[in-house]
Design a binder for these strands. Sequence first.
DNA 1: ACCTGGTATCAGCGACTACA
DNA 2: TGTAGTCGCTGATACCAGGT
Length: 351
Amino acid sequence: MLFEDTKYFDYKFPEPQYLGAKYIHRGWIAQFIPERTNVVLDAFSGSQSIAYMFKQLGKKVITNDFLNFNNLIGKALIENSSNKLDSSDIELLFSENSDPSKYNLMSELYTGLFFCDEESSFIDSFRSNVHKLSNPYKQALALSIMCRSMTRKVTMGHFAHTQALVYASDPTRIKRNRSLIRPLKNIFLDLLPEYNAAVFNNLKDNISYNKNILDLLPTLEDVDLVYFDPPYCNSHADYQSFYHLLETYVEYWKDKQFVNGIKRYEPKRYSGFDKNSEAISNLQLMFKQAHHIPTWLVSYNDRSFPDIETMVDLISPYRNVKVERKVYNSGRGGKGSVAGSSEILLVCTMK
DNA sequence: ACCTGGTATCAGCGACTACA
DNA sequence: TGTAGTCGCTGATACCAGGT
């Protein structure tokens, strides 16, 4: 590899906890990027770990996710080239609630469910002060780190798991995951240096979007490569339910209903990719819309709907497809282990 | 048959520690 | 400085119940 390709590699992406984060596969995926690729689109960016890898490789990165809390990570770490949070910013964020009658959503919804009273008051007051930061990049950074801190509190990183407070009073649970009883403020302060250190300038005009990919794709020109990492149907692929709390926190909805035991917001955003019944037709449309982008990389696995053969059939009208496979030699064990399954990358090139 | 909401799980990785 | 032992942390999960 040339120096040009590695000069940003000292920067380190703050490790994500998301289900399905491609962070651990980023080196493997990188080898399939053709030479002379300058402009790259990450269409379903999630944690932003792959967009970050593209940025480290010196590409101009266009990144997108239909959930805003993911877009904000994109603003903070991909689009942002220099803004970090300093001690005066932290002082602002940790000051008292600037408008308790307006900023009380987390307390009202999640006290006794995901957080104790003190903690939900703290995140409400933190949220009330975010707008005092001097620009949108600092604001995005602050919200990203707080979302990451909150994620540490729940099993599997899911806010569909309602046992956080039960576990927080169970000594064996606490022994296994000390974050359960640590104040969010402390977790935030631990993560802060990692996030600050991850901000860098690759001398490109990078941009993060918060759109449905089916609306964004037709508007983009001059993209050399697109990376698709769509939700994998067949198991639960409803990321809005898993991470509803984070989206509610950044959006601070005032016009939604909050339903069920988990207090998920309703109505949900339209995804188009999270139901078996819609997945194929929307993948078909998406591939059609990507006709003007020469190279496509599609992450997949061998346990999802539609199956790999169907995916290849959907792409074949437009591109040559090569199926690359990385076998997990050892999963992380346990019930959630994916040992023995494969990570798939469909490498799609011009005919 | 499919969708949605919810709970339960344990093996392995890797960071850390103790000891030589 | 090297290595064996310890232990914290995690999971595109597995499974079930109930609704449409």
